[in-house]
Amino acid sequence: MAQEYVYKRDNSRLFVAMRDNGRRFKVIMNEDKIPVINEKEEDIRLVRTEESHMCFEYRERRFHCVVTKRNKNSYTMLINGVEYTFSVESVSSYLRKKILAKDAGEEQDLSIKAPMPGKITAVYVDPGDEVNVGDPLFALEAMKMQNEILSPIKGKVLELTIKEGDVVVKNDELVKIGVVD
């Protein structure tokens, strides 16, 4: 019950780490004590830390955790070779965000970016075309492999910034798709 006391009294030590898929972790950082995660004491102990690399011990196993991306309050952590991205909020910023989210618009236009560097070997759509989820947009050749890039949403092709034969680098904007109502 002592933890609950901390939780109620000291909101400055309570943080929420949230993933894009909506999974939330409420974490209470206790000075000199183990953290409380989602109302449960978890025996996670920091073994050592250097720059962006942290090593934790949990249930007699070591976990190496590396920060691979960091942008404002968003942290991408690499652990056992797999990345997890969280946006971390303090209690007040979390509540504020919740209020703002209610006012925000629903869906937005989407830019398709090059997932990897390569060469555009075919373009299957023209501006104005309507596309469905899973329709091929263009083919990207990278590391000797042809990759078909599929539309992640249903919509209309607004803008096409590439043509066959173009060489693109990672994250180049290639196609913009507008949401149709």
Partner: peptide, 23 residues
């Protein structure tokens, strides 16, 4: 399928740990 609930929790804690330090 690559994700693992224990790793995810430790990663969440690590992200909070960093944020908290900066805070």
């Amino acid at each position: 399928m690559l994700e693992n609930p224990v790793d995810e929790m430790i990663a969440a804690h690590a992200a909070v740990y960093l944020y908290h330090n900066e805070f």
